[in-house]
Design a protein around this nucleic acid. Structure first.
Lengths: 137, 137
DNA sequence: TTACAAATCGTAATGATTACGATAATATAA
DNA sequence: TTATATTATCGTAATCATTACGATTTGTAA
């Protein structure tokens, strides 16, 4: 997903296009990994001094709801990244820089066999560590 | 892991045994699934009216550190359960009652092949949904 | 260009968790 | 068993991320 895809989604759902919304999208497009609300605030402060928390969190929440962003929880903070809609997969997440690498393995087919009578709603499979670039630092 | 195993661990590490510590352990032993700090406070208030947050969170943190409890994050709150030390496995977690079912499948061996040069520190594989008992309610 | 719904602002409130100085309780050694 | 050192707990305030809200501004469609 990129910024213009995302704007298209918002328009189709009747949400308005604003400068802040576009900048939030390009921030995540450029980020290519997980970022926190704080990271986003810091970025937007450069352009929009004194931007409201309301704007930050409302839009993060909205983007997550319409599938533009996906979220995960790391050290007590929510982290967000551009959603990869292409196909189902999981991520290696670098604890240092937040960048991700796609993992194609998903064990859910096999797991379901051992969960008859259980109603599966969701699953999470994430690998944490240091990416090659962050190991040398 | 049960309460007496856990007390043994604490003793061996030089931590003192108190009534509250024992009660916290038996709470989690009885629970057989994930519980929040709030759940624990509610339980302990019955016996120890006005128990301090400090006691709750300090002990949860300690038990997690020494491997008595394991933790996960669900809807913005930390959830804790007795650690199953026997062997490596993952969990189905019921969103309603917090009870868990062990999943023996772990795809990490296979995943590692696609992560050469990545330093893997940790991984999480959890399945969420409703257990048979909670579906009928 | 107008009008109205939606977005943002500025700031206060919330909720989970952490922190801390004072006090109490436990374990150990005499 | 008693003294003593160390650890645990208390009571409460502080912190941190996130949510909420009335007032104001802005985008969009007619």
């Amino acid at each position: 997903m990129n910024t213009s895809d995302a704007i298209e989604i918002l328009k189709n759902k009747g949400y308005k296009t604003t400068g802040k919304r576009k900048d939030i999208l390009s921030f995540f497009e450029k980020a290519d990994g997980y970022r926190t609300a704080k990271d986003l605030i810091q970025f937007l402060e450069e352009t929009y001094e004194g931007i409201s928390f309301d704007t930050i969190y409302r839009n993060l929440h909205l983007y997550n709801e319409v599938g533009i962003l996906e979220a995960t929880e790391l050290n007590g903070e929510k982290h967000f990244r551009m959603n990869c809609t292409s196909h189902h997969h999981h991520h290696f997440i670098c604890k240092d820089c937040g960048k991700t690498k796609e993992i194609e393995v998903c064990p859910m087919d096999e797991v379901q066999k051992s969960l008859v009578n259980y109603e599966i709603e969701d699953h999470k499979f994430e690998i944490y560590g240091l990416c090659p670039a962050c190991q040398s630092i």
